[in-house]
C-alpha cells in the first residue's frame, strides 16, 4: 500500500493520450480503478455469501453457518458501499481536473451513483429489520441477490448504452502504447494492495460483528 502511494506520485510516468493536462491527472487511476472494480467485486462477495445464507436454510444441519454467512454478506456490502463512495469521489475529482466539471452525468457517473443507491437500499433494509433478527438474514440475502440483476446491468451495460456518450477514458488507458512500463509496475501492485486491504477490512468487520452479537 505504501509502495502504491509512493509510486503513484514518483515512479510512474504520466500516461499518454490525455488532452491538455499531459496525463498528470491519470495518476488518480492508481486509486480510482481498483476502488471502482472492488465496489463491484464487493457486491459479488456479498451475493456469494447471500447464496450460502439461503442454502443453509434448506439444510437444517447448517443453521449455525447461516448467521455467519449473513455477517460476511453484510460486511461485504458495507465495505462495498464505502468503496463505492470512494470511487465516486475519486472519479469526480478526476472529472473536475480533466473535464472542468465535477459532475457531468457521464454514464459511468450515472451507474456509480445508482450503484450507491442500491447499496444504500440494502443497508436501509437491514436497519429496518434490525429488531427482527429471525428474518433479517434471509430477507436481506434475497434483496442482495435480486439486486444482482440491476447491479450487473449497471456495471456492464449502462456505460455502453449508445444513447449515452461516455468520456470515460477506459479505451485510452487500455491501449498498451499509452502507458509506460513503470506505470504498469504501479498499477498492478495497486490492484493487489487494494484487494488485500479489502480482504483485511472484511475480516476485521466480520470479527467485530461476531463479537457484537456475542456481547
Amino acid at each position: 500500500m505504501i509502495y502504491v502511494c509512493y509510486g503513484a506520485f514518483f515512479i510512474a510516468q504520466p500516461a499518454k493520450g490525455f488532452n491538455g493536462g499531459a496525463g498528470e491527472t491519470a495518476r488518480i487511476v492508481f486509486f480510482h480503478v481498483p476502488v471502482a472494480v472492488l465496489s463491484y467485486i464487493a457486491y459479488c462477495v456479498g451475493a456469494w455469501h447471500a447464496i450460502s445464507v439461503l442454502r443453509a436454510r434448506s439444510k437444517p444441519g447448517l443453521a449455525g453457518r447461516n448467521s455467519d454467512a449473513d455477517r460476511k454478506s453484510a460486511a461485504a456490502m458495507e465495505l462495498g458501499f464505502v468503496y463505492c463512495i470512494l470511487a465516486t469521489i475519486t472519479g469526480s475529482l478526476f472529472s473536475g481536473a480533466q473535464w472542468n466539471s465535477y459532475w457531468n452525468w457521464d454514464p459511468r457517473q450515472i451507474s456509480i451513483v445508482i450503484m450507491l443507491l442500491v447499496y444504500a437500499a440494502y443497508l436501509l433494509l437491514r436497519s429496518a429489520l434490525s429488531d427482527r433478527t429471525d428474518r433479517r438474514a434471509e430477507l436481506s440475502a434475497v434483496y442482495c441477490l435480486l439486486a444482482l440483476v440491476p447491479a450487473t446491468f449497471l456495471i456492464w451495460i449502462v456505460p455502453r448504452l449508445p444513447w449515452l456518450m461516455s468520456l470515460h477514458p477506459t479505451e485510452v488507458l487500455a491501449q498498451p502504447k499509452n502507458t509506460s512500463l513503470d506505470y504498469k509496475m504501479v498499477l498492478y501492485p495497486s490492484f493487489i494492495a487494494f484487494f488485500m486491504l479489502f480482504g483485511w477490512m472484511l475480516q476485521l468487520r466480520v470479527r467485530m460483528m461476531r463479537l457484537l452479537s456475542r456481547g
Partner: peptide
C-alpha cells in the same frame, strides 16, 4: 420501505427504457 427498495432497481430499468 417498498419505494426505497424498489426505486433504485427500477432506475436502472428506466435507463434501458430511455435507451
Amino acid at each position: 420501505l417498498f419505494s426505497a427498495l424498489g426505486l433504485p432497481l427500477v432506475t436502472v430499468f428506466l435507463l434501458l427504457l430511455l435507451n
